[in-house]
Amino acid sequence: MSEARLEILNNIRKSLTAGEPKTSQRTSELRARLKYTAPQIQPGFTDDNLTRFCEKHVAVHGTYEFIKLVDIEAAVLKYLQGLDIDPQIHLGAGPCLDQVKWSEGVFTYKKSADKNTRVAVSEAFAAVAETGTLVMCSGSDLLPSHNFLPDDHIVIVDCDRIVRYQEDVWPLLRTGDHFPQRAINLITGPSKTGDIEQTIQYGAHGPRRLHVLIVKD
């Protein structure tokens, strides 16, 4: 490839091993390390996954409620009503979300969010108890702009998809379709900034509010 590439790699080798050429053995060893990586040290905690997730999600200014699968629409509409927002929704996809039959009068859009988008409803690929984090992946009908442009982001989380540690997400992703997805977004609370006087202010560029509907049947 390029001359710069060669020079940089050679320079690295020169610095590291006094110019010794790399061996194919080392390459295959490192390749193997990439394939079989076990989790390293993880923080211990005693709470069960659901409790921990909720606690951490609230700690970063998220809100949540428990609902039944059949109540998704009702919960979304109630939340929007509470904020006095018209039911015009940018809609994602997922095993739970796909089962919802939206009533007439609720406008759903399966397209990218834009600068005026008020609300998106998505379903998380998984959630992490340790940090209260939502895992969102890109894919067909899964549009990352929904995660970042609306004022309000409502995310459905299937209770059974809450895993304990971040490291528990990686095998799920690896064994699923389309890995690695173009975008894997780990979202922990609404958007915020501390850039003015080091004081946290919510709603910097992304959603001002993050509401999670935990589906528990």
Binding site: K56, G132, G139, P180, R182, A183, N185, S191, G206
Partner: peptide
């Protein structure tokens, strides 16, 4: 960095949009 447990957004991007992607 900030004393947070985890930042709000940690994103992992691999390559340009895929055939199945609606944006990117």
């Amino acid at each position: 960095a900030t004393g947070q447990e985890f930042s709000a957004y940690t994103s992992i991007y691999s390559g340009p949009r895929r055939p199945e992607d609606g944006e990117g």
